[in-house]
């Protein structure tokens, strides 16, 4: 397997952590109360920490003095390989929790497989991440239940989020050409195999939360190929602002 395939494969995982971490960090200071604010920031810090581990590995694979920051801040929009789900905006707390929940369930399944990767670095990052992500899943599942089975208002708000974000779940199980190479060489996880476990878990929690499971079969995809939603450009404008405005400086 070529370095470039591996790097692209890692982007497919790491960029999700970066973009979701970025979204969560927008909320710091604006949560529904202090306790929840602190919890959300903890998840953001976990995700950004994972991102750094992946990017530092990519930097090492890339050589030529590449740094984690070059990778985080200096790619063009098409070069980010995160799924569309994680870049969706913080419309309201219902969206924040649903987005998190939809991603956490996938993320945990992914890392549980990735810890067996033939690539030792990836396996180690996954192993460490499992503990963090197990907690994320617990947190977001609990909140899905609270919002779903809370008040009428919260039920309808979180149902709206579930209905609107559902279409982004299928993309989690798509495999790009680079993914296929990585899977073949025993480094990558075959995400298509995770699909039934994923929907089983999601449906069980949604049911417990008294929420309807959307039944539409149309899904959106593109993020994994670098074709993002319109939200992504604005997110990157923030993320990259300093590095773009003041190129080639140390911070």
């Amino acid at each position: 397997m070529k370095n470039e395939n591996l790097i692209q494969y890692i982007y497919g995982i790491a960029d999700n952590a970066l973009i979701l971490g970025q979204r969560l960090s927008e909320l710091c200071g604006h949560g529904p109360n202090l306790e929840t604010d602190i919890a959300g920031t903890n998840m953001a810090l976990d995700l950004l920490g994972q991102t750094r581990s992946y990017y530092q590995y990519v930097a090492q694979l890339s050589g030529e003095g590449t740094t984690e920051d070059d990778i985080a801040f200096l790619r063009t929009e098409r070069q980010y390989k995160n799924v569309l789900l994680v870049e969706q905006p913080n419309t309201h707390f219902g969206y924040v929790i649903t987005r998190q929940f939809f991603y956490d369930v996938f993320h945990l399944l992914l890392l549980q497989e990735l810890q067996n990767s033939k690539d030792e670095t990836l396996a180690a990052i996954a192993k460490k991440g499992i503990k963090e992500v197990s907690y994320h899943q617990r947190f977001s599942s609990d909140w899905i239940k609270r919002l779903g089975d809370g008040t009428e208002v919260s039920h309808s708000k979180v149902q709206e989020a579930v209905d609107n974000l559902w279409k982004f779940t299928d993309e989690l199980f798509h495999t790009t050409e680079d993914d296929k190479v990585a899977i073949k060489s025993g480094i990558g996880v075959d995400v298509t195999q995770l699909k039934s476990a994923y929907y089983e878990k999601i449906k069980a929690i949604l049911e417990e939360a008294t929420l309807n499971i959307p039944d539409h079969k149309w899904f959106r995809k593109g993020g994994k190929e670098g074709i993002h939603s319109e939200h992504m450009g604005y997110l990157l404008s923030d993320l990259q602002y300093m590095q773009r405005t003041y190129p080639d400086m140390k911070w």
């Binding site: 306790e35 602190i38 609270r146």
Partner: peptide, 20 residues
Amino acid sequence: SLHAADEEMALENARDVYTR
């Protein structure tokens, strides 16, 4: 101390607030 709606949340909040 802290605020929480239920005991699960109280534990989670305690973890997030007091064991960072």
